[in-house]
């Protein structure tokens, strides 16, 4: 356990705490979505850090999965906020054009 890992770990945790605070306090929905996205990024970093200091590099797969899911979740949330509906959205818009 080198001081480098420890310092990086503490820095990630502090950043996570700040993202959490923004997610709880966030006056608008966008603040919260951004905070959750940032928290996801920090979770990816944390998992990568754990993978390296415990020497189990297969954990990096989980970090990859987290970043993919983070992206999908944020896109889904933003689509909902922007349009108010998203599953039948394209269908209805085509109708309007016809």
């Amino acid at each position: 356990m080198t001081p480098l890992y420890l310092g990086a770990g503490i820095a990630f945790l502090v950043t996570m705490a700040m993202a959490l605070a923004r997610a709880f306090l966030g006056p608008t929905v966008f603040d919260r979505i951004l905070a959750v996205n940032m928290f996801g990024t920090k979770a990816v970093l944390l998992v990568a850090l754990i993978a390296f200091f415990s020497g189990r590099e297969d954990l990096l797969d989980i970090a990859l999965l987290y970043s993919l899911l983070n992206f999908i979740g944020v896109v889904a949330a933003l689509r909902l906020v922007e349009r108010g509906h998203f599953f039948a959205a394209t269908e209805r818009e085509e109708d309007k054009e016809n």
Partner: peptide
């Protein structure tokens, strides 16, 4: 909506 985001978190 915020509740759902926090739940994901």
């Amino acid at each position: 909506l915020a509740m759902v985001m926090l739940f994901g978190l």
